[in-house]
Design a protein around this nucleic acid. Structure first.
Lengths: 144, 144
DNA sequence: CCAAATTTGTAGCCGAGGCTACATTTCGCA
DNA sequence: TGCGAAATGTAGCCTCGGCTACAAATTTGG
């Protein structure tokens, strides 16, 4: 054994980190959406929209606070920090790009939205750039 | 909306199931690769290639056995069942398609391989079909 | 053929992300 | 104004996927 082609090592820590980050991203995006809609994000509403029990949302928000992405006071709404808002916006932008790419490829609309939710968290900066470039080319009429 | 509504999607289990399935898929694929290469897959080798400690691989293999995807005897190699082999092959095929799609879009090769590993687990059947159709069109020269 | 090295198994810990049950605070309204 | 309903917090439990440490089995080679 032991030679273990360095190229083949998958580094599962990356998988876990990704999963954790994906969760944070989903919460941040949801909080941002709720802030836009209601002026603040309540734990109960966050939990309801993400389909989890409220203590689960509470724990996640604790993590967001620990990471400096959100702030909140007991029995009050949750608010994003500047870092949180920035993350939310980049997540939203990436989501739009991924959906647009899938649609351009020919993925049915309903499916595109659903799959994008899972896919977007694994799209690296460079891949995102490639997506954007492709979409720009498509829009210039070089095929669709 | 805070009451326990049984008809409502019971939680974020979808995300967890996805993550769990992604892990199983990675292990199954790796075991299949090792079987092809060495005739059998040893725990130590599986762990090394996936970049985890061996007890982690042992636990994962236990899960595979529980799910009927693999069999093994103490201090011996791990082997896939028919179901496991079938899963491995479909995973491999999907991986190839995702990488091909990314390359066709213009994603750099190194990035395509890396991102595909994360993306592939979130590509649904219908999206995969769309990818294949797109690739078929590209190959027929309709511009890509 | 036996001892050392390697491989595998097992025990037990951790944190994440779920859950339920119950306590507490805030809010709405009669 | 006060009380009940709704929202939030807290405690405690589960599984999963990591880990380390140590025990047991197997393989290797002198």
């Amino acid at each position: 054994m032991s030679e273990t082609d360095p190229t083949q090592i998958k580094g599962f820590n990356r998988a876990r980190e990704r999963a954790a980050r994906a969760l944070l991203e989903d919460y941040v995006e949801m909080i941002s959406d709720l802030a836009a809609e209601f002026g603040e994000a309540r734990i109960t509403e966050i939990a309801a929209r993400l389909g989890v029990a409220h203590p689960t949302a509470t724990k996640a928000v604790s993590r967001l606070k620990r990471e400096g992405l959100a702030v909140s006071r007991p029995y009050r709404g949750v608010f994003l920090t500047e870092a949180g808002e920035a993350l939310a916006e980049s997540v939203r932008a990436r989501h739009r790009t991924v959906v647009a790419l899938l649609l351009a490829i020919g993925v049915p609309e309903e499916v595109a939205e659903l799959d994008a939710e899972g896919i977007e968290h694994h799209v690296s900066r460079r891949t995102l750039e490639a997506f954007e470039a492709y979409l720009a080319r498509s829009e210039r009429g070089e095929k669709g």
